[in-house]
Design a protein around this nucleic acid. Structure first.
Lengths: 244, 244
DNA sequence: CGACCTATTGACAGGTTTCAAGAAGTGTGG
DNA sequence: CCACACTTCTTGAAACCTGTCAATAGGTCG
């Protein structure tokens, strides 16, 4: 078993955003973790419509979840960052509702489905954490629906960027107001339900207003105040959460 | 304790869409259920931004979940029907991400938050069911995002109606191709991210095409084939699910 | 009957999409 | 090291879907 990182020394655990592990938690996770998986940019991690034989936690790298529709259109559900838990739908329901794809090279802590669900019998607190994560995801999706359903393009873009920046800050990925952002404009467009062209023009507006500059796979927040005003006050700092 | 319906005789349990209860399950649910709550049309059951001291399962009646935004706009997340489980977000996270409102008079099985989470320690299978429900909700929200983000008005409306009709069929609420539909056009508009006026005109088109007729709080599916074609093949019959 | 909410319809404005073409950046092979 | 293919990003113009405004009709309730 390739296990470059033992859960006891998991670098993510040191981040204050993640709830502390008990010794028992560490032991359980090490028991469940069967290996680390490395995926290259563009690779599909889990496929819409298939069950998930494995569950993953993102150790490093970035990716995205997206739904592919009958006519070929694509809806990005959200972006994946370290600490995100992947595959619950495919493990619990019979199939994944979306596809998971790597954008950069990613390293994934890998759990086997059958072993994973032992936690329900063995460690009720961890089972509760799974519910917490699912509820949190549901909360986010509700906000995303409201944003996409109700706001004009510039506010949608501002919302997405503000949201992503908050997460990056909590993960220590952002250096001040600058953060890595390896996605394409098409990805952001598909996240926000906008055309590529209009997304591009909206980004140009934000650039001219000197609010956000996206250049060379990096996002520079030039005016956080204006950004949050556009995003609607709904952007809260990322809250503490469990890590699996 | 007012307990008009004992879980053992719960009418919902008889529906084939719901997974069977073991004797132990019945006993646990009766222990958790503290009463039935009746709410009148228009009443708020749980409020966005507040914690949920109680969790509910809809016994009868219909309602909706919606997010209210800073500028007063409203995004409906989905419609509530019997068997739906309410309040998980408010119980697990510190606050509800959306408001829950009754559309018709509703009867709600009521669980106290603190007692409810005993199931994690006492009955791992039921805890798994909670995760199943959360994952299922997440699955639905992904589809909703894709629909609202990518499809034109007529397909959005068709999607929503086809989806709702499937659920009503599984719950025995639909008589053939007719089902009760107590909502206002504004509710459907806010669900689909469309204006009221455009929703009205789109419904008129579906009526003229003799695909769907919505009249007197009832929905008549006149041409299921065409409806599903418009909705995109993504409408599957409702799958079996746990009942809490 | 009057007040009020909901549904309907027409006209117009406007945000977004689509179409199209070109620029900029990246990687590969000669 | 340059040429070429390919992807991504930019920009302009026109078409179109959807939103807003406004007025009317229908229904319910006191």
């Amino acid at each position: 078993m390739l296990m470059a990182v033992h859960c006891a020394e998991c670098p993510l655990r040191r981040l204050p955003i993640f709830d502390p592990f008990s010794a028992e938690d560490v032991a359980l996770m090490e028991e469940l973790k069967i290996r680390e998986t490395v995926v290259e940019p563009g690779a599909t991690v889990l496929d819409q419509g298939s069950p998930a034989p494995y569950l993953f936690t993102v150790l490093s790298g970035m990716g995205l979840r997206h739904v592919r529709m009958a006519d070929g259109k694509r809806q990005v559900i959200n972006f994946l960052m370290p600490g995100d838990f992947i595959g619950l739908q495919g493990a619990v329901l019979e199939d994944m509702g979306h596809t998971i794809e790597a954008t950069t090279r990613m390293v994934l802590c890998t759990f086997r489905r059958d072993r994973f669900f032992r936690i329900f019998a063995q460690n009720p607190q961890r089972a509760y954490d799974v519910v917490w994560l699912a509820a949190s995801e549901e909360h986010f999706l509700g906000d995303a629906l409201a944003t996409i359903g109700q706001l004009p393009a510039i506010e949608r873009v501002a919302w997405a960027i503000a949201q992503i920046h908050q997460r990056a800050l909590a993960l220590g990925l952002a250096l001040g107001d600058t953060m890595p952002f390896p996605y394409r404009q098409q990805d952001l467009a598909d996240l926000l339900g906008l055309s590529l062209v209009h997304t591009n023009k909206t980004l140009a507006r934000l650039r001219e207003m000197d609010i956000v500059v996206w250049r060379n796979d990096a996002l520079h927040i030039r005016d956080p105040g204006q950004l949050h005003r556009l995003a609607g006050a709904e952007i809260e700092p990322a809250r503490n959460r469990p890590l699996l």
